[in-house]
Design a protein around this nucleic acid. Structure first.
Length: 808
RNA sequence: GCCGGUGUGGUGGAAUAGGCAGACACCCGGGACUUAAAAUCCCGUGAAACGAAAGUUUCGUACCGGUUCGAUUCCGGUCACCGGCACCA
């Protein structure tokens, strides 16, 4: 058969559509399988050559599961709210709705050209009011349960996008999206209390089949620290509470540091206690001006100001110690104040050196010997032993931690405490192209959520989307929309003008797929119970601390309020590696190494592109694009297309039959382990063997194209129809099974070693006994002379692999 | 600095409950077919040395060392690169 991919591919894509081949069945008695890929943001650039990699991988898994008899849900949709579309709208004076529609059309055409077995009847779009109605509904539930609240906070503000960013969106001190400068600004924002779920988000990971690097990255991001809170008295009468993970070192605390924003500073200045108030104010102002970027840049040199006129008292020994403010102490973590132990903390040591503060050693090495804390902090905790610490002397660090909290705890001065790095999720964006927050401000009632029958709260149709210079949302200009009545008291009210971040819609989309047209719930409880949780979710590493964490948080919340019957949405999570440019660098316009998938589909066909993206290397690792290598995949498919010429009526050959069983086993297991590259290599090897054999049976040919079908479905459908004369879809055929006994060869070639060095090979019957193998080696004309006159002092035999004779 | 990952031919990559390193493919070289080229097919292809040849030997999985009959795989140390976090007390 001449392999004309252009004629074949469109034909079968249409045929799959016509027969609704991949539509998931709503028969909840069938065994189900839910395979999920991260739905794309339909950007103006069109599909990236990286997209087909995870899509094809999950497509192969979905197709194989379907062929194995599962009712498979493999859905797709569009995560379409977001800044790039809005920025494009501003620049080109086109409505975001229209741009989004266009981009989706392009993406859809491109994705369809790849022959992915998505269930298009369940296509969703986060910007569709029937979808974001339920995003808004979830927000209201969060509000009703006290998990959404509005607060004046210092937020990350991108000066270029003019928008507030979540901590997760600030990368290296600059805006993740545009690279613009990020400054801190105080604004009233909606926040979601993800911190309430910090521990559950850690604990939940234990039983999930997530790849290890995803788990550790989430755990590190949540950042649990076990320690204690300790109260320090002051000469001003107020108490300073600190959080520390090293309460054992309390006797070594020689000064204290508070964040410049700490409320006590303000209180003491107003009370006239602080004598150098001007200096303190100047430092506060300077710290507030610094952007995150400057803070990290300037971190080498410690700065700070001593509060003159007030001292603290170390509760362990009653010693008076000075108090400083410094921006190396963060207002947002712990209590915003620390006890400084310069002998055993690197940061405190640097600060103490700079300000000439005393450095006291309270931990010695395991032998109890003094260590030098003048030239650097001693931070060893495993083997350290306490010294200069009264009743803690001689204890290990671990024991001392417990003891001191116990002793001070009795006086009410200390208690165990757990802290997390995770902060609440800043949920407001002062932009246009997002879900409106369904809340009304009423002077009398405060913030009031819209009643459910007023959802969705539609995004008004504007002509101007520019954010204002004050950082207010463009919606604020739309007075007829802003001014409304309070749903509670009927008095005048004003709508919230900020919109949700683009992480909102993607935090629950996998639930909507279960029942995408449901109009009285996120999805019907029966559908959710049947389809959820997602059996296998593949996505990028870049979403581990954002989307993946946020969506687990929402799922846990929805479980708590009885909407989801499972608290964890995804059973299994894997991550794909990036496709890099030919030069091994990340693909980008500026580097000029971008490959357009349309060109590849046009020249080689979708089947070749699919095959190549799976063959390129280890699925989890990044791999450079190679225009030369892709030809090898095309050649393989051409040889497959030529295979029918070899079909003969003669029976199977036992050797080839064994090769088939081995290949079925290998491909089946490799797909389950995402080892697509070796699965393809196995099929290539089998094809080479068929060509060497020179003939194969019709059944064997059918088996071959069934195995290959998930990888190159168009060609296999065509061969199934034209060569085998089938009117059924091979995409829905039964997956081949192997007979274990037929995967075993009768004879096997083993390695023969003498003194651990390879000396040759020997063919022996499969499963031969050690004595027989050694005898065969001794009798062999090649090995016998090597053994002559020597004594064998040890025989090592690994069945069917190797024999090693140690001689003297 | 901390956490995680990765280092294998000219290239992408195989092979680790320790057991014939380099599967499969790309590139390259030689040959067949062709007036010629492309395509296709066949053969070769880690390096070095010896040999007329079949072949033989030595070296070789970032580097140094250890355990073992045997190490790409395990252990200790070093270096390089990639990703994440980063004054989190």
């Amino acid at each position: 058969m001449k392999y004309d991919h252009k004629a074949i591919e469109k034909k079968w894509q249409d045929e799959w559509d016509r027969r609704s081949a991949f539509v998931a069945k709503n028969d909840y008695t069938l065994p189900k399988y839910y395979a999920l890929v991260e739905f794309p943001y339909p950007s103006g650039q069109g599909l990236h050559i990286g997209h087909p990699r995870p899509y094809t991988a999950m497509d192969i898994i979905a197709r194989k599961k379907r062929m194995q008899g599962y009712n498979v849900l493999f859905p797709i949709g569009w995560d379409a709210f977001g800044l790039p579309t809005e920025n494009y709208a501003i620049k080109n004076k086109i409505k975001p709705q229209i741009i989004t529609e266009r981009n989706i059309a392009t993406f859809k055409r491109q994705i369809k050209s790849l022959g992915l077995s998505f269930d298009w009847s369940r296509e969703i779009n986060t910007t569709d009011p029937s979808y974001y109605k339920w995003t808004q509904w979830i927000f209201i539930q969060l509000f009703k349960h006290g998990l959404a609240y509005k607060k004046e906070i210092a937020v990350n503000f991108c000066t270029s996008c003019k928008v507030v960013l979540a901590n997760e969106e600030v990368v290296g001190g600059v805006c993740e999206r545009c690279g613009g400068e990020v400054v801190r600004k105080v604004k009233s924002q909606w926040l979601l209390k993800i911190t309430d779920y910090a521990q559950r988000l850690i604990d939940g990971l234990a039983d999930l089949d997530f790849i290890e690097r995803v788990k550790t990255q989430q755990i590190n991001w949540i950042g649990r620290s076990d320690g204690a809170e300790i109260k320090f008295g002051t000469s001003a009468g107020d108490e300073i509470v600190v959080f520390t993970t090293r309460p054992d070192t309390l006797f070594g605390a020689t000064y204290m540091v508070m964040a410049p924003e700490h409320t006590l500073v303000e209180k003491w200045i107003s009370a006239g206690i602080i004598k150098n108030a001007d200096e303190v104010r100047a430092y506060q102002a300077q710290a507030a001006r610094k952007s995150d970027f400057e803070r990290t840049e300037l971190q080498k040199e410690k700065t700070g100001v001593r509060l003159d006129g007030v001292v603290a008292i170390n509760p362990a020994n009653g010693v008076s110690i000075p108090i400083f403010i410094s921006d190396y102490v963060l207002a947002t973590y712990g209590t915003g104040a620390i006890m400084a132990v310069p002998g055993h903390d690197t940061r405190d040591w640097e600060f103490a050196k700079k300000f000439g503060l005393p450095i006291v050693q309270v931990v010695a090495d395991s032998s109890g010997a003094e260590v030098d804390v003048e030239s650097g902090a001693y931070t060893e905790t495993e083997t350290g032993v306490l010294v200069n610490s009264d009743y803690l002397n001689g204890l290990s660090v671990e024991d001392a931690k417990k003891k001191i909290v116990e002793v001070l705890g009795e006086k009410g001065l200390a208690q165990p405490k757990v802290n997390y790095k995770l902060r609440d999720w800043v949920f407001s964006r002062q932009r246009y192209w997002g879900e409106p927050v369904p809340m009304v401000w009423c002077e009398k009632c405060g913030w009031v959520p819209l009643p459910e029958d007023q959802l969705p709260l539609l995004l008004p149709d504007l002509d101007e989307y520019e954010p204002t210079d004050t950082g207010e949302s463009p919606l604020a200009k739309c007075e007829e929309w802003v001014n409304t009545t309070c749903p509670k008291c009927g008095g005048p009210g004003k709508r919230e003008t900020d919109v949700m971040p683009n992480w909102a819609g993607s935090s629950w989309y996998f639930i909507r797929y279960c029942d995408p047209h449901c109009d009285n719930a996120l999805a019907s409880p029966e559908a959710v119970k049947y389809w959820m949780p997602v059996d296998w979710y593949n996505g990028g590493m870049e979403h581990v601390t954002l989307h993946l964490l946020y969506s687990r948080f929402w799922a846990q919340f929805l479980y708590d309020i009885g909407v989801l019957p499972y608290s964890e949405p995804y059973l299994k999570r894997t991550a794909h590696g990036m496709i890099l440019g030919e030069n091994g660098e990340k693909m980008s316009k500026s580097r000029g190494n971008v490959i357009n998938p349309d060109d590849i589909v046009e020249e080689y066909g979708a089947d070749t592109l699919r095959l190549y993206e799976m063959f390129i290397g280890d699925f989890e690792k990044a791999a450079p694009w190679s225009p030369a290598s892709i030809r090898g995949c095309r050649r393989f498919l051409e040889r497959v297309a030529a295979l029918p010429e070899l079909i003969s009526g003669e029976g199977v050959t036992p050797e080839l039959e064994r090769d088939f069983h081995k290949t079925i086993k290998k491909v089946t297991l490799d797909i389950d382990n995402m080892k697509f590259n070796t699965a393809i290599a196995a099929m290539m090897t089998l094809l080479n063997k068929i060509n060497d054999t020179g003939r194969l049976t019709k059944d064997e040919f059918a088996t071959f194209i069934t195995l290959l079908c998930p990888f190159a479905p168009h060609l296999c459908e065509e061969l199934n129809q034209t060569v085998l004369g089938s009117s059924e879809l091979i995409s829905l055929a039964k997956w081949p099974e192997w007979d274990e006994s037929k995967t075993v060869d009768e004879e096997v070639e083993i390695a023969v070693q003498i003194n651990g060095k390879l000396r040759g090979t020997l063919v022996i019957p499969m499963g031969a006994e050690q004595a027989a193998v050694v005898a065969a080696v001794r009798a062999d004309e090649k090995f016998a002379p090597m053994l002559e006159g020597k004594t064998v002092i040890k025989e090592i035999y690994v069945p069917n692999k190797l024999v090693n004779l140690v001689i003297k």
